[in-house]
Nucleic acid binder design. Structure first.
Lengths: 240, 240
DNA sequence: CGGTCCGTTGAGTTTAATCAAGAAACGTGG
DNA sequence: CCACGTTTCTTGATTAAACTCAACGGACCG
């Protein structure tokens, strides 16, 4: 049974038995981490590549005025920048959202792996390009979408990403995100998020629990968001 | 006399004579492009890495409702994603802002260059990490900064980036950006940008010309923005 | 020299933030 | 297992920020 990291990379390109063995070696050592635990903090010198095997994490930054902006969610199989070891210090922090299983790969080991396994290298660069597209899509959302579109768009992104890694079992999908986290991800106040969610609930697009929410109708959300999934690079160039 | 691309890479790591010769070969063929010319459009299959040798360009995306969001500015020496050739199609467009000198490197050539020249590879990955930091900083700006802070923050970013590549000759710095471009970069309306600039002008932080603007007091802007330059990774790990 | 694009300003409207308060769920320790 | 404190969610009323609409002037271009 392959771990989420390996399974995700397989979606981005073919891997040989040897590639998979190398990935298994490198991600074999993992640790269990409680929710809301910083994996690395702004200012720390990064020495390891962080790989999320199970659970959710988030990249975030705290501003001088105390507010927080979340810049990305990491789902099972996702990892932080491959070449992060080149930096003198982190410019943001990464924290678990839920209890998680985390592998930390020493940067030199990751460099060696990329060098020796070209399939892995290609798959990882494809994954990274997708992440960058996501980053740009967030900018587009924050700049040019209304608050309800913005919420719906994030939901679509998360739903689609979750689908691809086999996390969506029915048409519905439960996210482990509180309204406070959503607010910090979308640049709004929790109060306003709450009102937007109320609206989406009344349209039967989603329902809300304490500390999490359920996407009931992703198609409707996509319509509200004006969602274009191209940015997630569903259609990568056929791997050669 | 080395071109801007090579000079920029030298800032990110030491290059040998051989490295430099290879970079010169690859960027020797360039073309002059007028302002407001699309270099590549959303939906196009990317086959070349775009390198800006002179002038400014921007990444942008047009939404279904016709609005535009700019997600990045490319300055002399900057290039688009190295591995862009892996994608089936672009999820955004890239356009010149000013008249520019552009080199387009076929993706396989770029791959070969990175393979054969590890110094170049390292320098480029460092540059790319910096770009990603910039992307995240934009998200933070859009989500959690007031409009005046947001404008001031972008000005600081651009001033600092321009300084590093030797584009700032006095303490002042002229940017070739219209208020419309600024508005589309910062997720505001041109009308509101105009009022914010008026405010910054009255504080003697900047002045404005038609189609461009001048940063008069970058220190004051940094103060207004709450600017933290760490995200631009001034202090990279000492190249080894 | 007429047209177009950009910048500027004012007035009115919309959107989202702020302030405030209470309810419901959760966690912990006795 | 219950009591208590804490966090999250919810709602209403008010304020602040930014957008929209509209109009006009100046600069640049052919």
């Amino acid at each position: 049974m392959l771990n989420r990291f390996i399974k995700k990379l397989q979606d981005f390109g073919p891997l040989s038995v040897d590639d998979i063995a190398a990935l298994e070696r490198i991600s074999a050592a993992y640790r269990r981490v409680p929710a809301r635990t910083d994996l690395i903090r702004e200012g720390d010198p990064p020495t390891h590549v962080i790989v999320v095997l199970e659970g959710w994490a988030q990249r975030y930054k705290i501003l001088p005025n105390g507010t927080r902006q979340i810049t990305a969610f990491l789902m099972p199989g996702d990892c932080c920048d491959l070449h992060v070891g080149m930096l003198a210090q982190m410019d943001h922090s990464i924290q678990t959202v839920t209890p998680a299983r985390i592998a930390t790969v020493p940067s030199p080991d990751m460099d060696g792996l990329l060098d020796r396994h070209r399939n892995i290298q290609k798959a990882m660069y494809r994954a990274q390009l997708t992440d960058e597209g996501t980053l740009r899509a967030w900018i587009v959302s924050m700049g040019r979408r209304t608050s309800i579109e913005r919420v719906a768009h994030l939901m679509c992104e998360l739903y689609l990403r979750a689908s691809r890694i086999g996390l969506v079992l029915t048409t519905e999908f439960e996210l482990p995100l509180s309204q406070i986290i959503l607010a910090d991800a979308l640049g709004m106040t929790p109060v306003h998020i709450n009102r937007v969610l109320k609206d989406l609930r009344s349209q039967a697009a989603m329902s809300v629990k304490r500390g999490s929410m359920v996407i009931v109708n992703p198609v409707l959300l996509a319509q509200i968001a004006g969602f274009d999934e191209n940015y997630l690079h569903r259609r990568l160039r056929t791997p050669s």
